[in-house]
Design a protein around this nucleic acid. Structure first.
Lengths: 244, 244
DNA sequence: CATTGGAACTAATCTAGATCAATAACGTTA
DNA sequence: TAACGTTATTGATCTAGATTAGTTCCAATG
């Protein structure tokens, strides 16, 4: 499978715009480096020395940090087209763990590839870094959101954000999307207990705003939910990379 | 003032190790680009298009995000030697604001410098990115800590972390350090109210662990505080950059 | 087809920290 | 030196969400 032919990935990379032939050639070398991961088995452990980053082709992955008290904080979810662990390569070791939520396939981007890209095609390297910076910014936004938002806003904001991101790769729209997450995942991501998540989901459902059931998120009142969550999709904007 | 002669900055950059003459030459061009900022006046506004990053030479700066409800979340503090807004340059605009807490001086690292560094001295560029990644990791660590830690752990952890970071640039030790932050700063950084911060600080003082008074943090029982906060300084480690 | 185990769901109780409302201390400026 | 603004401090009350302890539902598995 050529990277340019892989549907979710190409949409992500299309933001890089106007690549030269040389750059395309380098990108082409990512061919055949795809790896499969089974649901539930960590792809990368916190603290592990990492020699590669990944681009998720199919599946869902979550990034999390284990806390000293044994609980875990999920810092983000990756859907097809998202980068995984780019920063771990720079830092020499991963500062969090990655767990596939369902069976997933990812393209491997080896450290050597990144190093070569730096010297051979700096613009391509910059594009990668831009993508990494953007993903980082989203995680920060998410974590900051935890601080001052209450539970119902956190949950509705989160569901809307996922819809927006999945929409970018054609996996969802304003009606809803398929979502393999459990209420436990939501709890760990949003800093709540699963008990409370359950209650709030019930309230949202009874208010005819959104339902989260049987692997499917359905928006009954998208506009109303946007208002409740004070959701502003601006920060997800696909702005151009530095060297475009 | 040459960058190599500037005490806090050189310590930070020394982690880059073994730079070639060409790389030193590029670094040397940062000369005389220092700028001063007055306490309380934002250096950079959220959303502003940024054409430069900074390295803080003297002073204290805080990075924050304004929330929709008007409150602000401080995502980190910068002390001498820290980088400021490197990511904003990659993303074309700043995703948070920077406010000097006291009068501060920063070396400007213009966008052009970074671009040139990418093509001319990829290793140097990598070193900068490594530094940026490391600072990012610290912010994430901090924000994640907010999720599950209670107020006294947050506060003691925060005070210990600052001590460790200031220690790296010779501005503090296990006895204590000078700190221009107000209790409101702590509250905004830790997601608490200033009222509660005040109460917890009183408790910590009465427990003879640490005092936060008159611009000075004094550790009365450093070891005890480390235990209370479950503080593990490992994540602050100055690991080597990618291309070292 | 019975069993098991994960996920969803519910109810009762408890508490950390917010909120509201003052007061005190202190440095700055008129 | 009077007035003011900022920061620190304390007390009383309130509440969102945690905690604990279940039950229900359903799909997989032997």
């Amino acid at each position: 499978m050529n990277i340019v032919g892989s549907s979710p990935v190409i949409r992500k990379l299309s933001a890089f715009a106007s690549l030269s032939d040389a750059e395309r050639a380098v990108l082409g070398r990512l061919d055949a480096k795809s790896r499969s991961f089974s649901a539930g088995r960590d792809m990368v452990h916190q603290g592990q020395t990492e020699r590669a980053a990944y681009i998720l082709a199919t599946g869902w992955v979550c990034s999390y940090k284990l806390q000293s008290d044994g609980s875990r904080q999920i810092v983000g979810f990756q859907v097809p087209g998202d980068f995984l662990g780019l920063r771990s390569v720079l830092l020499h070791r991963s500062d969090y763990s990655f767990e596939p939520i369902v069976d997933s396939v990812a393209l491997e981007v080896p450290k050597e590839f990144l190093l070569e890209a730096f010297s051979a095609t700096p613009r391509l390297a910059t594009a990668f870094l831009w993508a990494a910076a953007r993903d980082e910014a989203m995680m920060l936004e998410h974590l900051v959101g935890l601080g001052r938002r209450d539970a119902s806003k956190r949950i509705s904001h989160f569901l809307l954000e996922l819809a927006a991101r999945l929409g970018l790769v054609g996996l969802g729209n304003a009606d809803g999307y398929d979502c393999p997450l459990t209420q436990y995942h939501l709890a760990d991501a949003l800093g709540l207990t699963s008990v409370h998540v359950n209650r709030v989901l019930r309230d949202l459902r009874q208010a005819d705003l959104v339902s989260f059931r049987a692997g499917r998120v359905t928006f009954m009142d998208h506009a109303g939910l946007v208002e409740l969550a004070e959701f502003d999709p601006a920060y997800l904007d696909q702005t151009r990379p530095l060297a475009a």
